[in-house]
Amino acid sequence: MRRLIYFVLAFIIWMLLTWQIDAQVIIAGLIVSAIVALLFHEILPKEHLVFISPIRMFWALVYVPVFFYYMLKANLDVVYRALHPKMPIKPGIVKIKTTLKTQSGITALANSITLTPGTLTVDLTDDGFLYIHWINVKSDDIEQASEFIARRFEWFLRKIFE
């Protein structure tokens, strides 16, 4: 089942990339997608079937503009710090706790954290802690840091992934 989903996804991406309907292109795409699906189907998350649900897709669509807003804010923040003559940075590595449980949810949270204001995921542990490099440390307490960094995404990601 996972192989089939992966095969269909790979083939759709192949068709979008080549963007032409032609017997040779389609046959090549089928062969390549089949090989890829056989070899790499394990990278799809175990709980993949739950994603085929309109509610999750709706929240995923809502998440896109929210995410882009935070990303733009992050960029302006970094630009400000990079261009300011005194370079107002106060870096450090803090530890935060996430309430998300699924692997895909934690992955999405880690990636969201990396792309948004002043934070970069360095490592994560099996019991739900993340180590975050923070360019402007406001608090080194686990609870408070989690509040600052992760809460705003967790609400959305729980709706999408859990």
């Binding site: 990303m71 960029n75 630009v79 940075i89 970069l120």
Partner: peptide
Amino acid sequence: IFGCIGLVRFPDVYNRLQASTKCVTL
């Protein structure tokens, strides 16, 4: 461009990664 300026100006690997990932991605 701003991402690259940050890459040059920030002091260590981790801060440079911040600048390069965020600005260059967007």
